[in-house]
Structure formats: structure tokens, C-alpha cells
Design a binder for these strands. Structure first.
Length: 225
DNA sequence: GTAGGGATACACT
DNA sequence: GTGTATCCCTACT
């Protein structure tokens, strides 16, 4: 359908699951921090029993392997984290705290474990199904936080190792849409080691970013100690 | 602030 | 094999 003539910079094309394709494997075959930055504003998609779920990523965290003590891969491969050591472009889904699943995308070549944790997203399509899974949460909170994101999308350990380049669960090749928001960086959440590495990235001020609200708005103002 | 809940990793028999 | 501290969290007070 026609869109109004742009008077300044043209708008990127809106996401359309019939038009856009999964990002190619080469996208993921890079350092996790670079992939993390490029994921902000992209659309996560799942086609599920005739329903398309889609959400725009607004918060992610990069994890590395042997040199990152906060990473599941730090101590080498195990049954749980095996997917992280496999080829890039797959989903690493793990279960934690007895009740939550978290979704990562695997980066770098086989044998080199790096990944990006998907922490927050803004719902675009399939909101009815997401709401049914989240029992009364506000729309902005449906996918806020890694556990909520996994739950709204219905992703579990069954999806560990899912190939993101095939079209079941995938991230679209539509250009990132960031609504003019700046990309911010800060320490990762929920870890107690390597907190000095600012490998959490998010879109400034977005309502679907997790963590304390003041962090989402103004990380540099964090008070000195 | 903390209860909730189960898998995981690792130390130790 | 068993014991147990920990865990990339959420929802509640």
C-alpha cells in the first residue's frame, strides 16, 4: 500500500512476515557484541500453528566464551550449553531459577562459544497469543525481561538448537527500526562477575526495556559509590 | 526486600 | 553415586 511521501529521510520498510526473510548465517558469524548491536530494532518472528508472533528487539546482552566468566560457556562445553559451541545462527535456550527460560542466539564459528541473550522486545504481531501466555500483563510488559520474552513466544528447551535461518523461529532481515532512540550500553543484569564489561545494550527510554526504569533512561547517572 | 522453584555443576564419598 | 550452593528471573509484599 502507498505510504506518504517522505519529506526527509525515508522510513525503512515496515516489517512484513510475507516479505522479509531470516537473516543469513553470516550475520551471526561475527563477535557477539557486534551482533548484539545489529539486533537492536530487528524483528524476532515465530510461526506457530498458523499464528505469526513478531516483536521488535529493544534490549540484548552479549556473552562470550572462555574469556567471559559470566557466560555459561566459560567452563567449557556441557550437555546444557552444547549449542553455544555449535555453528552460528542457532537458538540456545536454557532453563534457570526453576521456572524461566531464556533465549540466546549463537554467534561465531563452531567451537567458539559466543551468544546474545534476548532480554526485551516490543510486541508487533500475535498479541492475543502472547497475552494468553502471560495472564494479564500489560502489552508493554509482555516481552520485558528474558523470561517473559521466552514465555510469550512459547520457547522452551525444546527449541534449544533451533536453526534461526530456516523460518520456524527467526530474526528478519528488515532494516532495524529504532524510532530515533539512541543505543545505550551498560553492565549486564543478574550477574556477579565481569560486571565491568558493558555488554548490555538497549534502546534508550523504550518502555519494553527491563531492569530499573532509571537505568533504561539514564545509565550514566548511576550514582557513584 | 524476598519467596518461589528445579536444573545444573562440582565437590565429595 | 549423594549433597548442596548456585543460578544470565519474576512476581509479589
Amino acid at each position: 500500500m502507498p505510504r506518504p511521501r517522505a519529506t526527509e529521510a525515508p522510513e525503512p520498510p515496515a516489517f512484513d512476515p510475507r516479505v522479509h526473510r531470516p537473516l543469513p548465517r553470516a550475520f551471526y558469524d561475527r563477535p557477539a557484541l557486534a551482533v548484539a548491536r545489529d539486533l537492536l530494532g530487528r524483528v524476532l518472528v515465530r510461526r506457530e500453528r498458523g499464528v505469526t508472533l513478531a516483536a521488535r528487539l529493544v534490549e540484548v546482552e552479549a556473552y562470550r566464551g572462555a574469556d567471559d566468566p559470566a557466560s555459561h560457556a566459560y567452563r567449557g562445553p556441557t550437555a546444557r550449553n552444547a549449542v553455544m559451541f555449535g555453528p552460528p545462527g542457532r537458538a540456545y535456550v536454557y532453563f534457570t531459577y526453576g521456572m524461566h527460560h531464556c533465549v540466546n542466539v549463537v554467534c561465531r564459528e563452531r567451537g567458539r562459544a559466543e551468544a546474545v541473550l534476548l532480554r526485551g522486545a516490543a510486541p508487533l504481531l500475535g498479541l492475543a497469543r502472547m497475552r494468553s501466555r502471560r495472564g494479564g500483563a500489560a502489552d508493554a510488559a509482555l516481552l520485558r525481561g528474558p523470561g517473559c520474552l521466552a514465555r510469550s513466544f512459547g520457547l522452551t528447551r525444546e527449541h534449544d538448537g533451533e536453526d534461526l535461518t530456516r523460518g520456524g523461529v527467526w530474526i528478519a532481515d528488515a532494516p532495524p527500526v529504532r524510532e530515533g532512540r539512541r543505543v545505550r550500553r551498560g553492565p549486564r543484569i543478574g550477574i556477579r562477575v565481569a560486571v565491568e564489561r558493558p555488554w548490555r545494550l538497549w534502546l534508550e527510554g523504550h518502555p519494553c526495556v527491563s531492569g530499573p526504569r532509571r537505568l533504561a533512561a539514564a545509565p550514566e547517572r548511576a550514582k557513584p559509590r
